[in-house]
């Protein structure tokens, strides 16, 4: 015979008694929270922004990683510098970075913001790497990088926030290649 159980009591009746407790430290918990909802600031500077937008869109669906573009630096966690940073724009990028609350992260997307890209020699108006203005956490190489690369960069940043990746991820080998070609020519 089934007895009628009051609604609040059902949960208690079905309790299994297995698990339900996670031990962690505060820092890991906070980092887990941070890496699970990386909200980038919604802005783009050049053609990399087109790839970034397609990464946000349904085909690559960045919000499955908790990445949602935000319209204001005051509510953003990560700045994706997607495109060519000109000197005129550099002051604005720096100001926007300063307006972001801590903890804040920067992903440099594409060759232009990594090291000046195709403008490295004759681009009088281009900053030769956004890391001359703001500290960069992850560099995504490519011209422009495919959406998969940007997703890879975000996963790398998540690893970095977790504390798995300590070193800077600057693609110095590419710069070394450019330098050797400059010397030989």
């Amino acid at each position: 015979m089934i007895k009628a159980v009051p609604l609040g009591m059902q949960f208690q009746a079905e309790k299994s008694g297995i698990g339900g407790l996670v031990m962690t430290n505060m820092e890991d918990l906070l980092n887990w929270a941070r890496l699970s909802s990386l909200w980038p600031m919604g802005f783009g500077l050049a053609c990399c922004a087109i790839e970034m937008m397609s990464t946000y869109a349904s085909a690559y669906d960045l919000d499955r990683l908790g990445v949602l573009p935000r319209p204001s630096p005051r509510v953003s966690d990560v700045m994706i510098v997607a495109g060519t940073v000109t000197f005129k724009m550099a002051d604005r990028v720096h100001r926007l970075y300063e307006q972001m609350p801590d903890p804040k992260y920067v992903i440099s997307m594409g060759s232009c913001s990594n090291c000046g890209g195709p403008y490295w020699q004759h681009g009088y108006h281009v900053v030769k790497g956004v890391d001359k203005i703001i500290p960069v956490d992850v560099y995504v190489p490519g011209c422009p990088p495919r959406p998969e690369s940007l997703i890879g960069g975000i996963l790398k940043l998540q690893e970095k926030i977790q504390g798995k990746q300590q070193n800077q991820l600057k693609p110095l080998l590419i710069e070394k290649l450019i330098a050797s070609q400059m010397l030989s020519s």
Partner: peptide
């Protein structure tokens, strides 16, 4: 320099 940022590209350190 423009606003304290070097304009010309510099050869990076040997990785």
């Amino acid at each position: 320099y423009y606003h304290g940022v070097k304009v010309v590209w510099e050869k990076p350190e040997d990785p």
